[in-house]
């Protein structure tokens, strides 16, 4: 294996693995977000008193 190929494989492996992982995380996030009401979907806002600031 030539040096150029080694370098390419190393960089592409890093980019590819993180890229695929990121895409899968974002897709699963989208799918999960549909099942969770907006007022509970964020950690920061869910932990604050649950009734406050809720438009009803």
């Amino acid at each position: 294996m030539s040096n150029a190929a080694s370098i390419a494989i190393a960089w592409l492996a890093v980019a590819g693995v993180f890229g695929i992982y990121l895409v899968s995380v974002l897709r699963r996030t989208k799918a999960a977000a549909k099942l969770v009401p907006a007022d509970r979907s964020r950690w920061m806002t869910t932990d604050a008193e649950p009734t406050k600031g809720e438009p009803s």
Binding site: R28, T29, A33, L35, W43, T46
Partner: peptide, 25 residues
């Protein structure tokens, strides 16, 4: 952060339970 956000949504989803999720849908 991104991964945590997903985990949080999934946690909330499981907390709400299937019944709530269906009602929501």
């Amino acid at each position: 952060t991104k991964r945590f956000r997903l985990a949080w949504l999934e946690y909330q989803r499981d907390e709400l339970g299937l019944g709530d999720a269906i009602a929501q849908r």
